[in-house]
Nucleic acid binder design. Structure first.
Lengths: 110, 110
DNA sequence: TTTATTTATCGTAATATTGCAATATATAAA
DNA sequence: TTTATATATTGCAATATTACGATAAATAAA
């Protein structure tokens, strides 16, 4: 118990869930928005932007990276992080698809 | 510890995180997709669609409802569930906004 | 080499999530 | 009222997440 039964669902469902889960924490949303605001690779600097301790930020960055939402390369002493467009586009396409299917049908329920 | 420090982030960041978190489990993605496929209110039936026990499904439905992703009304013995368009549209707009800002800038990094 | 700086990892405590059996609740049907 | 059916809640065990201090690793600068 306590473990998500991923084998019972499709790959597509698991992939969406993985990306969504990575954004399921405000610190990780804040990191994404900061990377977007600066709009270029950030080398160092992210830790100072967040009201959390350095190991905690490092852990959140790792989760975003594992989920494919950000990319990062070693750049000397610092690390160069930026948003991975592919993941964002996948999410955007997914929800746009749902929204368009929803608009096709009746709203007179619930 | 173990608790997310929501007070350190903006309301907007917490709202996105809450909705994303609700979709951070494949069973809840599957529920959303099932509601979309049927494209009308579902009264009963959801439990049979998922490979999980009834209390587990009930719990997932509760989380989707708390996050505002689905709506549900009591309908006799059954419960009528359907997708809440507003939440989907908020997500779609959020990611579309990120995607468009990303496309404005250089890609020659990371 | 030594020192400073930056990020990652380890270890751990507190809390949250997942899943389900058992049970409760609520309504429909007999 | 009794029975059947559908969903919710409770309680619990297993696991995951969150957060951070301490420490390691890796590179730049002195």
């Amino acid at each position: 118990m306590g473990t998500t039964k991923t084998d019972l669902f499709t790959d597509a469902q698991n992939q969406i869930a993985t990306i969504a889960k990575a954004l399921g924490h405000p610190a990780r949303v804040a990191i994404l928005e900061y990377l977007l605001k600066v709009n270029e690779c950030i080398c160092g600097d992210i830790v100072n932007e967040l009201p959390l301790a350095q190991p905690t930020v490092s852990q959140h960055l790792k989760e975003l990276k594992n989920a494919g939402l950000i990319k990062g390369n070693v750049e000397g002493t610092a690390i160069c992080y930026c948003i991975d467009e592919a993941a964002i586009e996948r999410l955007q396409a997914y929800f746009a698809g749902i929204a368009s299917k929803l608009s096709e049908k009746k709203k007179d329920c619930c």
